[in-house]
């Protein structure tokens, strides 16, 4: 069990000698600062700040869960809970290329449909583009959609998937985790799915409190 980590706030330098800057920090005037509220995490003299809240910035290769918001002749617009609206080109949606658009795209994916997609490209100059023409990606047919702040996704997964596997096993549910903070839970019945959602919200709320895995496994035992 890890001990409680120090809360760090914007503005005040991290006053320890001989440290190197890592994730979510910046250097100004030779001092290391955190630009956000987060938990201080020093490993091998490298200062990292674990964020407690934040928006999702797409990275190439990420698995995300999106909701179709619009469609045109050749592409869909997809909400991926990011400041940047994503695009799914028809060419990246089908395994076989469509020779010519003969039917409107909403025949395949309509507004409001949920998809599991991969971020194919993103460079801050153009919108992120998605792909669903690989194994494991595509339209979501059933399950419960849960949303948490994207920065807590690593905590939900746990070390090598320890926490998420525990929840999956104990509740006998399947989960797809999007890096954008959306999770699809598929269980045998709605009850198990709602219990999983409750546990996911609990993880989000208490991610910074030590002993989380123990508390979650106790919650699961009691169920």
């Amino acid at each position: 069990m890890s001990s409680k980590k120090e809360l760090i706030l914007p503005g005040m330098p991290i006053e320890k000698k001989g440290l190197k800057p890592g994730n979510n920090v910046y250097v100004e005037g030779g001092k290391i600062y955190s630009p956000i509220i987060g938990l201080l995490d020093i490993k091998n003299n490298v200062v990292n700040v674990i964020p407690l809240k934040g928006s999702y910035i797409p990275r190439v290769g990420d698995k995300v869960i999106g909701i179709i918001t619009n469609y045109s002749l050749y592409s869909w617009s997809v909400d991926i809970r990011s400041p940047y609206e994503a695009v799914l080109m028809a060419a990246a949606a089908f395994k076989k290329p469509l020779s010519r658009p003969t039917v409107p795209l909403n025949r395949f994916l309509d507004i409001g449909d949920v998809i599991v997609a991969k971020v194919k490209s993103f460079d801050l100059l153009s919108s992120p583009s998605l792909a669903i023409n690989e194994r494991g990606y595509g339209k979501v047919e059933r399950g419960t959609l849960v949303e948490i702040t994207p920065v807590k996704v690593p905590r939900l997964i746990g070390k090598k998937g320890s926490l998420i596997n525990l929840i999956k096993k104990k509740l006998n549910v399947d989960m797809v985790i999007g890096q954008n903070g959306r999770i699809i839970v598929v269980g045998k019945d709605k009850e198990a799915e709602l219990k999983a959602a409750e546990i996911i919200y609990r993880v989000e709320r208490e991610a910074h409190v030590p002993g989380l895995t123990d508390r979650i496994s106790k919650m699961l035992e009691e169920w």
């Binding site: 630009p35 956000i36 509220i37 928006s55 702040t149």
Partner: peptide, 11 residues
Amino acid sequence: LADAGIPMRDL
């Protein structure tokens, strides 16, 4: 702003 997790140089 700080609560929203928006990066800032200081409050």
